[in-house]
Design a protein around this nucleic acid. Sequence first.
DNA 1: GCCTTAATGGAATGAAAGTTCCATTAGAAT
DNA 2: ATTCTAATGGAACTTTCATTCCATTAAGGC
Lengths: 204, 204
Amino acid sequence: MDQPSRSAGTVRPGGRTARVRAAVLEATQNGLVEHGFHGLTMDQVAARAGVGKTTVYRRWGSPAGLVADLMTELANQSSSHTDMGTVEEDLRANALSVQRALADERLGSTLQAVIAAATCDEQAAQALRSFYLRRIEEWAHVVDLAVKRGELPEGTDGREVVRAVSAPLYYRLMVTREPVTREDAEASVSRALAAARAGAFVRP
Amino acid sequence: MDQPSRSAGTVRPGGRTARVRAAVLEATQNGLVEHGFHGLTMDQVAARAGVGKTTVYRRWGSPAGLVADLMTELANQSSSHTDMGTVEEDLRANALSVQRALADERLGSTLQAVIAAATCDEQAAQALRSFYLRRIEEWAHVVDLAVKRGELPEGTDGREVVRAVSAPLYYRLMVTREPVTREDAEASVSRALAAARAGAFVRP
DNA sequence: GCCTTAATGGAATGAAAGTTCCATTAGAAT
DNA sequence: ATTCTAATGGAACTTTCATTCCATTAAGGC
């Protein structure tokens, strides 16, 4: 119900408030890693953050609010890509970055939990969608440049290529729940590229 | 805690027991569709099934147990494929079948909920994994036959091709949360096939 | 350093879900 | 039809989480 209180009056983001937020998001992530979204309660988060329960309710409102804010924080932390070299190198860098995130105990669990949260809460869904759509957009740019350089057929849909690189990794993570290895990441890049070179990603 | 009581003595799967199970699984699916796994409680399921709360606890133990049993039921209901025609036709049939399931209000929500449940419960995870691995195995056979017919390069990994066809659809469903259309399904088939023909699915 | 008030924390309250006890119902065998 | 007992259901009990009230703390302006 409560939106984070950005009142019209004076705001005090200094010292304590920031410290509380950091502790709460840390506790949120720990909770997600251990019990998933389903087991995330305001109660436990407050306790583990060493923060009053009231504060957590006032500032985040619900478990979904916590997850959404955590997602925002992760988005800000994530480093931007470096579009140097060939498409293959760029896409491999992308795929390996995704693979590392998914295979990482902490980050992988967190992402799974956020995806799970999105299935039953619109706020979390919004945070997730905007995060990934922006990410896709960024990397699509790399592909678009490659098209301009003539490495890929004219009209190739960069966003779809980027999706095609990530999709099998997330499929393994969420659906078949198999480990996601570097080999999987590299195979995914090879396959997406092979299809792209064959013109299978050219917009109709 | 309780496993479904398959005691050593006489079992009575007749009439009432089967009716209760059907009602409970129906209520479970309705609950998942409306509130997701996160909002699935034994309490509500029992109430909506018109069944005693005690019975639900005894036979299924937890929300995850309900989901796992529902998954088993869906697996049994699912029709088998018909491997006639070219690989392209077969894979398209597969992709469209998946697309229809994901786009369907009821089935799509259910699958999302099961995937979410699997992120925080090993029982649900097991049900999900075995369901999809078997499904993949079945369709991989179709691809293997195509390899024997010479439609695809020798050594092509059928399981990986099948995964590649489904992955983008599930990616859209769970990660970017975009609608999953027939066009997506057909594009996915084209791309997987293009890569397969280029030998990108040949085992190393 | 002092004052104002945004922000926090502890404790009490209320609602909802999980869990158990025991009487009742209805398959299945005779 | 009768009997046996697996299976079920109602209700009480316990725990846990969500929500609110009000006193306390500390950030930011003077």
